[in-house]
Simulated assay, not measured.
Amino acid sequence: MSKSVAAKALSRSYAGERTLTFLIGLLALAGGALALVVGFGLLGRFRGRRPLLDPMALAWLGGHATPARIAAIVLGLLLFVLGLRWTVRSLRPEPRPDLDLDRTEGAELVVTAAAISGAVQADAEQLDGVSRARVRAVGSRTSPALRITLWLHEGTDLKAVWAALDTQVLARARESLGLDVLPTAVRLELDTSPAKRVR
């Protein structure tokens, strides 16, 4: 499994949020740097002593008060709606995609995300050295992916578990679902044995 394939399974689709946050941060950084440059008088002492709001701009706003207020209200509402949408999108639960195996009308065949997760989990728990497993189907209907967490017994051969997971469990899942590629992120943890009481 390549890093890019595993990354697709690992990361929730935060590309939009990350890009927007980066751009806002970059804009704020540029604004702060410009304010420092002007404030220290590097663009001339006169500019450094001028008020924050340019008198010419204030005069123009005074002459066009009504359109300026309307523009400010519209801009504020737009920013509010965009912020609300961004918040709702960030807080909504991650989708668990069902997979359409057959879209023929009257003979549709859909495998639910829970069924995919349950089947892969049951297969993974049968592997030697695995004490328990947790599987989540993520992604979209057209591009599903898996997140697998395996808890291993102490002294388990990691290479053997990795090979069996790829050649048995994931190969069976790909074949059953009719997929050439099934991006998968695997997390391995050592299962904790119950604490022994000292008497």
Results as ranks from 00 to 15, higher is better:
K3L: 14
S4L: 12
V5I: 09
A9R: 03
L10F: 05
E17I: 11
E17A: 14
E17R: 02
F22D: 13
L26E: 08
L27V: 12
L27C: 15
A30I: 08
G31A: 15
A33H: 02
V37E: 07
F40M: 13
G41V: 05
R45Y: 02
G48M: 07
L52G: 07
P55Q: 00
P55L: 04
P55H: 01
P55N: 01
A57E: 05
A59I: 08
L61Y: 00
G63Y: 01
A65C: 11
P67R: 04
A68K: 02
A71M: 06
A72L: 14
L78K: 02
L84F: 10
R85W: 06
R85G: 13
W86M: 12
S90I: 10
L91V: 14
P93K: 00
P93F: 01
E94Q: 05
P95G: 07
D100H: 00
L101V: 12
D102T: 07
G106Y: 00
G106K: 01
A107K: 05
A107F: 11
V110K: 01
T112K: 02
A113F: 03
A113S: 15
A114Q: 05
A115N: 04
D123R: 03
A124W: 01
E125S: 02
D128L: 15
S131G: 15
R132L: 10
R134H: 04
A137Q: 07
R141F: 06
R147N: 09
R147A: 13
T149L: 06
T149D: 10
W151V: 13
W151R: 09
L158G: 11
K159D: 15
K159W: 11
V161Y: 03
L165Q: 05
L165N: 07
Q168Y: 04
A173M: 03
E175M: 03
E175A: 11
V181R: 02
A185N: 11
R187T: 13
T192N: 06
V198F: 05
V198P: 09
